[in-house]
């Protein structure tokens, strides 16, 4: 049981990093990034490729984050011209470009076959309890660090500007600020964070394929953020936890409801998660942690 709970906790921590990145982009700045998984994929593949070729783990993390930041920069330029829906479509497109590029670059990425055998983090610890515990501790520390930095950002002059961009971009421009510059910076930071999450993911699952970087991941992160409360940093953490508990908790339903066949239950689970989301938007539209609707 412990190992299973640890596995859930590790996935929650990895996805919380993604949700925090998205929260910075959408919740705080109002950037509708539907291409989150693209940056996640860049991180995952950078780590997978470098570590399976014998480079140290740190190199994978660094290269992934650097590449994602570089990839986010032109998107920032696009963001100068596109807003809201158009920007969302452009980012969705970017994530698909990343996926197709990975499929096509067979020499480097093994294409659709994927890369197996990515080394685990802290594999020197042979123990099946201590290795995941240490990984979880590192992930929690990373999340805490990110949360602290986000809080600082949100309360800094920079944070007030991006908040103003979210609320009224024209007004910000009228005040003599350049929204594009701020948006680009936010995008690049969020992209780097997503890539770090991707690296952790690759090392934990041990196997990456292009199938893992589909837009579905992006939308799960969006769900987590909406459940938690858009714009709230604590919401990002709790939302991810709640989403994973909904998805994983449903695994235990067959034990509780023996009269439903377990095969039907698997199908029901998707329904349960969807229903929870609908109920949330009806009864708690501001999310778990959102106290006031700010928009």
């Amino acid at each position: 049981m412990e190992a299973y709970l640890l596995a859930i906790a590790i996935f929650v921590a990895i996805f919380t990093l993604l949700t925090l990145g998205l929260n910075l982009q959408y919740g705080l700045t109002g950037l509708t990034n539907f291409g989150l998984v693209g940056f996640f994929g860049i991180g995952a593949y950078a780590s997978a490729i470098l570590t399976t070729h014998g480079y140290p783990v740190v190199a994978g993390f660094a290269a992934g984050a650097a590449l994602a930041v570089i990839a986010a920069w032109p998107i920032g330029l696009v963001a100068l011209r596109l807003r809201d829906d158009y920007f969302a479509i452009a980012t969705l497109g970017l994530s698909e470009v990343v996926r197709v590029a990975i499929i096509s670059e067979k020499e480097l990425t093994a294409g659709v076959q994927g890369i197996p055998g990515i080394p685990r983090l802290f594999a020197v610890l042979e123990s099946r309890t201590w290795q995941p515990l240490l990984l979880l501790a590192v992930l929690v520390a990373a999340n805490l660090g990110v949360v602290l930095v986000m809080r600082r950002i949100a309360r800094s002059p920079f944070g007030r500007v991006i908040g103003a961009i979210r609320d009224n971009e024209e007004a910000v421009r009228a005040l003599g600020k350049d929204p594009a510059r701020f948006k680009t910076q936010v995008l690049m930071v969020g992209a780097g964070l997503s890539a770090v999450a991707g690296s952790f993911y690759a090392h934990y699952v041990g196997y990456v394929t292009p199938d893992q970087i589909t837009p579905l991941v992006t939308f799960q992160i969006w769900m987590a953020m909406i459940l938690g409360g858009t714009g709230r940093i604590s919401g990002a953490v709790l939302g991810t936890l709640l989403l994973m508990l909904l998805i994983e908790g449903a695994r235990f339903l067959p034990d509780l409801l023996p009269f439903v066949s377990s095969t039907a239950m698997a199908e029901l689970r998707v329904f349960v998660v969807g229903l929870a989301l609908v109920l949330f938007t009806v009864y708690r539209p501001q999310g778990l942690m959102g106290e006031v609707a700010r928009r």
Binding site: E2, I8, F11, R251, M265
Partner: peptide, 23 residues
Amino acid sequence: VFADDDQTQPQAGVLAAKKLLEV
């Protein structure tokens, strides 16, 4: 038999397998 769904996704498969093996 304990039945579970891997959702045709590696990540869901990992969690389901952990649950089956550990729980």
